[in-house]
Amino acid sequence: MVIGGSIRERVARPSNRAMAWFLGLGALLSVSLAHALWFGLDGADPGHGVELVRELGLSDLALFTEARYTRHLSLADSHAAFQDHPLALDHFPTASLAAPPEHLRNPHVAGD
């Protein structure tokens, strides 16, 4: 009567399942770390981007194109409209509460 020792029962033991679960997740974590090392910024060449920056003398990312002062963040000065984020205690508190007026959002509709 081998009640306690069968393979099936050993595998069914909760802690064994937990171990398999964490080994699996740990392996995936290692894979992600290896992936980051392999394809990450440190390993990869910076690409054509750097060349273009050097060539054109670019100073900013094209990430926020919605407004002029966000397109070239580094060139914006302290008087540019930059106080409308949710945390700012603006000169004009309305800026953090109200949406920008319609004529700014849809310029071609307004003006009549």
Binding site: M1, G5, E9
Partner: peptide
Amino acid sequence: PFPELRERAAGLLH
């Protein structure tokens, strides 16, 4: 050891 303990418990229950 797990098999030993399980065996003992099963023996008692039997």
